[in-house]
Structures are given as C-alpha cells and as structure tokens.
Simulated scan of single mutants.
Amino acid sequence: MSDTRATSQTVRYRERLWVPWWWWLPGFGLAALIALEVNQGVPALPIWLPYAVLLPVAAVALLWMGKTEVRVMGTTDAVELWVGAAHLPVSVVSRSAEVPRSAKSAALGRQLDPAAFVVHRAWVGPMVLLVLDDPDDPTPYWLVSCRRPDRVLAALKD
C-alpha cells in the first residue's frame, strides 16, 4: 500500500480579465463595417457570407483578449499566485503593494525594470506589485493587472 497524500488546493481568489462589455459593440460594429466593405468590393460573394465569417471572428478575438485569469490557490502548506500559466509561490514574495490606476503609467514607464514579469491589460485599471526575494530567480518583481488588488493581496496573506 503506497502512502499518497492528497493535497487539495482551494481557490482563495479568482478573476478573469475580460474586456469591458461595451467593447463588444464597437467590435461587432467594426466587423459588420468590414463585411459591408467586402460585400461592396466582391459582389460575386453571397451577401451573408462576410457577416457569417467576420462576426464570429470578432467574438473570438474579444474572448481571446479576456482569457487571462488571475487566481490565488492555497493549501495548508503553501499559497501561490497564478496568472495564466505562470505561478508564483508566496514564500518568495518579500513585499507587496497595490498600484492604483493613477500610478500605473509610472509603474509601466520609466520605473519599469525590463526583467520584471508583467501582465498588463489596458482595460483593467489597478495592478498588484509583488517584490521577490529569490536568489535563484532573476525576476525582481511581478506587476499584474487585476480589478480588485485589495482582495488579491488579502488572499495572498491569509
């Protein structure tokens, strides 16, 4: 009989960085406008065909832009921040802070370290800054977009 321990990870926080709902209107409007132009430029095509192709392409593009998920997973032993496929154990985080929308341009501008791990979504206002203390990792910090940085930081500290 083998000794296997089941480590059940619990989700402490989860958020998907969807595009704003109102982006769907211009996205479909642009797809419809391009379909109209195709109809006028290529009269041999059935009128419905460009719309049937371009409207789903617009929907897929908007869904793809919002596919990134930020989540905090935890066990009794360890807590990790997952951003897409990348994950960071909280044990290597020395400091953490919220970056408000007003300070985001400074954090992403001249102050940005090129070695930092950055997941930035322009349509999400605030960010979370996690400074690392890991001698094996050349990444100085993580800078991640999230809508509720206070909840992310609280989930990381619990």
Score class of each variant (00 low, 15 high):
S2E: 14
T4W: 01
R5Y: 11
R5S: 14
T7P: 00
V11C: 11
R12L: 08
Y13M: 01
R14D: 02
R14I: 12
E15P: 06
R16N: 05
P26S: 10
P26F: 09
G27H: 13
F28N: 00
A31M: 07
L33P: 10
L36P: 05
Q40L: 15
G41K: 07
G41V: 06
V42D: 11
P43R: 11
A44T: 15
P46D: 10
A52M: 13
A52T: 06
V53C: 07
P56M: 05
V57I: 15
V60L: 15
M65E: 12
K67M: 11
E69I: 15
V72T: 10
M73K: 12
V79Y: 06
A85V: 09
A86N: 10
P89S: 08
V90K: 06
V90M: 11
V90R: 14
S91F: 07
R95K: 15
V99G: 03
P100E: 09
S102A: 15
A103S: 05
S105H: 12
A106R: 14
A107L: 04
R110M: 02
A115T: 01
A115D: 14
F117K: 06
G125A: 08
M127A: 11
L132N: 12
L132H: 13
D133P: 01
D134M: 08
P135W: 04
D137W: 04
P140I: 03
Y141K: 02
Y141L: 01
S145V: 01
R148E: 13
P149A: 03
D150F: 09
D150P: 03
V152H: 02
V152Y: 00
A155W: 04
A155N: 06
K157H: 15
